[in-house]
Design a protein around this nucleic acid. Structure first.
Length: 600
DNA sequence: GATTATAGCGCG
DNA sequence: AAAGCGCGCTATAATC
C-alpha cells in the first residue's frame, strides 16, 4: 500500500509491464485509481478491465497506451490521462497557487508525446507494434539530436497524481476541475476508440462523386504529366485562359491569376473567392468554378482517398486538447474539414446504420448557462433558440437572431450583426455581460477561464512589446493604432474563449456519456460486422466534430443508440449547469450515410 | 534542393 | 455577401 495525496494505491502487479491498481477512500472525489507504467501485450489477464470496471486506469498518455490495448480487443472504461490533466490543472486559474503550478516544465507539458506518430501509424493498420512493446521507450530516449524531457516512469506518475490531487483539492472549484479532468480523459479514450474503429468509408461512392464533379480522373500511371488536371478542371482552366487572353496562365498560381486579372482591367487585390464574386468579367465564373473544383481535387480527391482510406475505413488521428479552447484538433486527412460534397461516402456497413446527431445552437445555449441568463435559457426551451428570440420579440426574423448572436459570441462590430446587437444585449443582459467581461479582461491582458476551469493562455511577449511601444511618448500613430487593434483582437479571442471552451466541455461530457451508454447497451446477438473488436457487435462512435457526432450501430440497435445519444446530451447539460435548466436539443437522424442522415 | 511562409478555403 | 472566433491542409512562393 502506498499513499499519494488523498488516493490510496494498491499494487496489483509490478515489474516490466507494471500495473498499479488502487481503490480510493470513496466518493466522487476519490475515484479508484490505477497507475500503469507499461502495459503488457494483453492486459486482460490482470483483470482490471471489464470485470473491475470501477477501476480508473491512470497513465501518462492515453494516446500512447490505449491503441495497443484496443489492438488486443481490450476496452478501458475509465482513465485518468496524466498529461492532459497536468496541462489542464497546471494552467487553470482555479488552481493557480498550487505547487503543481510551480514545477518546471517537463514531459507532461508536451502537447503531444513524440512517439505518438509511430503508435498512430501502427494503429492505422490495426496492428499492434510488433516487438516494441517491452523495448526501451523511444519517447525519452529519442533516436539522436534533441533528447527532450524523459518519459515518466511509474514513480513519476504517482508523484504527478499526488500533485494533481493536491492542486485540485485546494482549488477554487475542486468539483469542476475533477469533472473537467475526467471528461478530458474520457475524451482521450473516445478519440483512440474512434481512430481504432475508423469512419466507414464507401470508396466507390467517393469516386462517383469525384467523377461526377471533376470529370474523368487523369491518368496517373507512368510518369507525371505536367498538366494532368481532371477533365472538368482542364476545361475550366482553358476557359479562364481564353477569357483573360493569357494562354499560359497557371490558374493554381495566385500571383499569375492576380496579374492576369489586373491586366484585364479588373480592380482585384486578391484572388479570394468572395472578392472575385464582386467582379464583372467573363473569366470570373469559370475561375470560381475552377477554384471550387480544385479545392475538392487537392484536399479530398483521389489522392486523399489513396492516402487516407484503407480497408473501407478513414482513420484520422484526433488530438485531444489540441486547440487552446479545449476543442479537439486532428491530424491526417483533415478529419474536421470533411466537405459536405463527400459526406455521402460515409456509409454504414451492410446491416448497420449511422446515427448522426448535432447539438442545435450549442454555443449560445452554453452561454445562457454560463451566465445564468434565465431569459435566454427560456427562449431556447423546447424550441429553436433563434425562433425563440423571434417569439420573444427580441428580433423580427430568425436570421437576425442568428447573425446577431454570432456577433455577440465572436465580437463582431460591423454590418447586420452589429445592427441587432443592442437589442440582444437589452434582452439578455447577463449573457452579453458575461462575454463583454471576458473581452475586457482579455484587453487588459488577463486570463479568462471556462466554467469547468480551462484557462486561456496569456498573450505572448510580442503582444506586450507592441503595447509598450504604443505607450512610448514618441510612439507613432501607427504604433498606437496597432496596439489598439491588437488589444481588441485579444479581447475577441478571450470573449470567444469562454464560450467555445465551455461548449467544448459540454461536448466532452456528451461524448463521454455516449460512449459509456453505448457500451452498456451490450453486444448485439447478430453476426459480427466489419468493425474491429471490441466493437464488432456493438454500437460505437466513429466521428466527432465539435458539436456533432456519428455512431455506427447494428441496424436493429440504431434507435436505441439514438435514444442514448439524446439522453447523454441532457446529462451533459446537468453535469455542467446543475439545477440551472438549459435545454440542449439535438437533431438526430438515423440513416445509411452521413449525408442522407444530415438531410443533405 | 530542402525548408518555411503565405494565401486560400474547407469545417464548426 | 461577410464579418467576428477556433482549427488543418494544400499548392505555390519565398527563403535559406
Amino acid at each position: 500500500m502506498g499513499k499519494a495525496g488523498g488516493v490510496v494505491l494498491r499494487v496489483v502487479a509490478s515489474g516490466a509491464g507494471a500495473v498499479v491498481d488502487g481503490i480510493g477512500p470513496g466518493g466522487a472525489a476519490d475515484e479508484p485509481v490505477a497507475v500503469v507504467g507499461e502495459v503488457p501485450r494483453s492486459a486482460a489477464p490482470f483483470g482490471v478491465v471489464g470485470a473491475e470496471s470501477a477501476s480508473r486506469w491512470t497513465w501518462d498518455d492515453t494516446a500512447h497506451w490505449y491503441p495497443r490495448l484496443l489492438a488486443d480487443g481490450v476496452r478501458v472504461e475509465r482513465c485518468l490521462d496524466l498529461r492532459l490533466a497536468h496541462r489542464l490543472v497546471r494552467g487553470s486559474a482555479y488552481a493557480h497557487g498550487a505547487p503543481l503550478a510551480r514545477v518546471p516544465a517537463g514531459w507532461f507539458d508536451e502537447v503531444t508525446a513524440p512517439a505518438d506518430a509511430a503508435t498512430g501509424a501502427s494503429a492505422v493498420r490495426g496492428q499492434p507494434v510488433a516487438g516494441t512493446l517491452f523495448d526501451v521507450d523511444a519517447r525519452g530516449a529519442a533516436s539522436d539530436a534533441s533528447p527532450g524531457p524523459v518519459a515518466p516512469d511509474a514513480a513519476a506518475c504517482l508523484a504527478e497524481v499526488a500533485l494533481l490531487d493536491e492542486a485540485v483539492a485546494g482549488s477554487a472549484h475542486p468539483g469542476r476541475l475533477r469533472l473537467l479532468v475526467a471528461a478530458e480523459s474520457a475524451g482521450a479514450l473516445a478519440a483512440a476508440e474512434m481512430h481504432h474503429a475508423g469512419v466507414p468509408w464507401d470508396v466507390a461512392e467517393h469516386d462517383r462523386v469525384l467523377s461526377a464533379l471533376l470529370g474523368a480522373r487523369p491518368a496517373s500511371g507512368g510518369r507525371t504529366v505536367p498538366d494532368a488536371r481532371p477533365e472538368r478542371m482542364a476545361a475550366l482552366a482553358a476557359q479562364v485562359r481564353a477569357a483573360l487572353d493569357a494562354p499560359t496562365l497557371n490558374p493554381d498560381s495566385l500571383p499569375d491569376v492576380l496579374r492576369a486579372l489586373r491586366r484585364a482591367g479588373l480592380p482585384a487585390t486578391s484572388t479570394r473567392s468572395w472578392e472575385l464574386r464582386g467582379l464583372d468579367h467573363p473569366a470570373i465564373e469559370p475561375l470560381l468554378a475552377y477554384k471550387k473544383l480544385s479545392r475538392l481535387h487537392s484536399a479530398n480527391g483521389w489522392a486523399w482517398l489513396d492516402r487516407w482510406v484503407a480497408g473501407g475505413r478513414f482513420r484520422p488521428e484526433y488530438v485531444v486538447g489540441g486547440v487552446v479552447t479545449g476543442r479537439w484538433g486532428s491530424s491526417g486527412g483533415g478529419a474536421l474539414q470533411l466537405p459536405r460534397q463527400v459526406r455521402s461516402a460515409v456509409r454504414a456497413d451492410d446491416g448497420w446504420s449511422l446515427v448522426v446527431a448535432d447539438a442545435a445552437q450549442l454555443e449560445p445555449r452554453v452561454l445562457a448557462g454560463l451566465a445564468h441568463d434565465e431569459r435566454m435559457a427560456a427562449a431556447g426551451r423546447g424550441r429553436d433558440l433563434y425562433q425563440g428570440m423571434v417569439d420573444a420579440r427580441v428580433v423580427e426574423e430568425r436570421a437576425q437572431a442568428k447573425v446577431g448572436m454570432l456577433g455577440a459570441l465572436y465580437g463582431g462590430t460591423t454590418g447586420a450583426s452589429a445592427a441587432v446587437l443592442p437589442r440582444i444585449a437589452r434582452a439578455f443582459p447577463r449573457a452579453l455581460g458575461h462575454v463583454e467581461a471576458a473581452a475586457r479582461a482579455g484587453e487588459r491582458g488577463e486570463v479568462v477561464t471556462t466554467l469547468l476551469g480551462r484557462s486561456s493562455p496569456l498573450p505572448g511577449a510580442a503582444w506586450a512589446q507592441v503595447q509598450a511601444d504604443a505607450l512610448d511618448p514618441e510612439a507613432s500613430r501607427n504604433a498606437e493604432s496597432r496596439a489598439r487593434a491588437q488589444t481588441r483582437a485579444w479581447g475577441r479571442f478571450t470573449r470567444n474563449f469562454v464560450v467555445q471552451g465551455t461548449a467544448a466541455e459540454w461536448a466532452l461530457c456528451w461524448i463521454a456519456e455516449v460512449r459509456r451508454r453505448l457500451w452498456r447497451l451490450g453486444e448485439h446477438d447478430g453476426p459480427p460486422g466489419r468493425a474491429p473488436a471490441p466493437f464488432a457487435r456493438r454500437p460505437h462512435l466513429v466521428y466527432f466534430l465539435h458539436d456533432e457526432l456519428v455512431v455506427h450501430a447494428p441496424h436493429a440497435w440504431a434507435e436505441a443508440a439514438a435514444a442514448e445519444v439524446r439522453d447523454a446530451a441532457a446529462e451533459a447539460g446537468r453535469l455542467l449547469f446543475g439545477d440551472f435548466a438549459v435545454d440542449f436539443p439535438l437533431s438526430v437522424a438515423v440513416g445509411d450515410t452521413y449525408a442522407a442522415a444530415k438531410g443533405g
